[in-house]
């Protein structure tokens, strides 16, 4: 195991950022620490890097006890959300910084800087200042700078968080390809489930200072350990006492066995998909029969394709029957239900 975190607790005043966290992050893989803001994922990353010290617990990197090592001695590369560029130095000098600190020979440094700038496609910008680069380019420079010292592990703290949606998408595909080329153990923090699902080999879901689940993207998506993981990885809705994805619900305009009757309350088309809010009939929903006013009835969110909507001629106010799609994953709800997140949040 490349990075081993064992029993780490970190408090900021009364706030518990990490509560007895233990996790192993495998060598050579791209791991995502995924969770909501303030959940402790950045703190965990900073503790691994030595930028923050744990109140208790240990960190080992490649078998070396690192708990009390200063960041200078850990040989980790760190990439910050806001680039942390050395503003008064050219791009090439930024990348060379770590090598100059290590007093490498000049020609070796120059060669290595050249290689890295090729790798991150910034060769033609070598003599520019960071302020003359776009956000995406600056982050690539920061990545090259971190890789220059040949770190044992590469840590990225919300690396694409400050970039706009399109650049973010490009960069995460690029990061995946880069990782396949360089194959350094990489850990990145994100609150974007799509980013984690798309890029990572393994995802660690962190919430409220605790690890909720560790697994591959498919494992997490198909077999969420609990309702938090399920609702964090994508939109969820409630039907028949369990949590289910809105696109895992079948809609029909005729009565089906096992289906629940309801009325289409609201319809919102977003590109190729149509989101329906279906108000269930009280007697079928198992809710208190007294809640008969349409607005107070239990509702379920359903996502269908535009084609389905046209085929069924779905409209607001229409009566429909909804049921779980066969083979879909449903998780029984816990007593306290977290707010389901909208897709793409």
């Amino acid at each position: 195991m490349s990075i081993n975190v064992s029993g780490v607790t970190k408090k900021f005043g009364d706030f518990v950022a990490l509560d007895d966290v233990s996790v192993d992050l495998p060598t050579g893989q791209l791991t995502a620490l995924l969770g909501p803001s303030g959940g402790g994922k950045s703190t965990l990353l900073r503790i691994i890097a030595g930028l923050e010290s744990a109140d208790s617990g240990t960190v080992t990197i490649e078998g070396n006890e690192a708990t009390h090592l200063p960041p200078q001695k850990r040989n980790v590369g760190f990439v910050f959300q806001h680039y942390a560029a050395f503003k008064h130095m050219s791009v090439a000098k930024n990348v060379a910084f770590g090598l100059e600190i290590r007093k490498r020979p000049k020609d070796e440094t120059a060669r290595r800087v050249h290689e890295l700038l090729e790798l991150v496609h910034l060769s033609q910008f070598a003599h520019r200042l960071p302020a003359q680069l776009s956000g995406g380019q600056r982050q690539r420079m920061a990545l090259a700078r971190a890789l220059a010292v040949e770190p044992t592990v590469l840590l990225l703290d919300e690396p694409f968080g400050a970039l706009d949606a399109k650049v973010r998408k490009e960069l995460r595909e690029w990061l995946r390809r880069l990782h396949d080329e360089v194959a350094v153990t990489t850990v990145f923090v994100t609150h974007d489930q799509e980013e984690a699902l798309e890029v990572a080999d393994e995802i660690v879901v962190i919430n409220d200072g605790r690890i909720e689940q560790v697994g591959t993207p498919d494992q997490l998506y198909d077999e969420p350990a609990n309702d938090f993981v399920m609702s964090f990885l994508g939109p969820v809705t409630r039907l028949g006492g369990s949590l289910v994805r809105p696109h895992d619900i079948d809609v029909s305009t005729t009565e089906e066995p096992g289906a629940v009757r309801g009325t289409v309350q609201r319809m919102l088309r977003v590109g190729f998909e149509v989101r329906l809010t279906v108000a269930l009939e009280p007697d079928h929903a198992g809710a208190a029969a007294s809640l008969s006013a349409p607005t107070e009835r239990e509702t379920v969110e359903v996502t269908v394709t535009r084609a389905t909507q046209r085929h069924l001629h779905l409209e607001e106010g229409q009566q429909v029957w909804v049921a779980h799609t066969e083979g879909a994953r449903a998780v029984p709800e816990r007593a306290v239900l977290p707010t389901p997140l909208a897709s793409g949040a």
């Binding site: 030595g50 942390a84 050395f86 600190i101 971190a146 010292v149």
Partner: peptide, 9 residues
């Protein structure tokens, strides 16, 4: 920025 310099050694 200072943390970046520190992590670079």
């Amino acid at each position: 920025v200072e943390e970046a310099a520190a992590s670079l050694g």
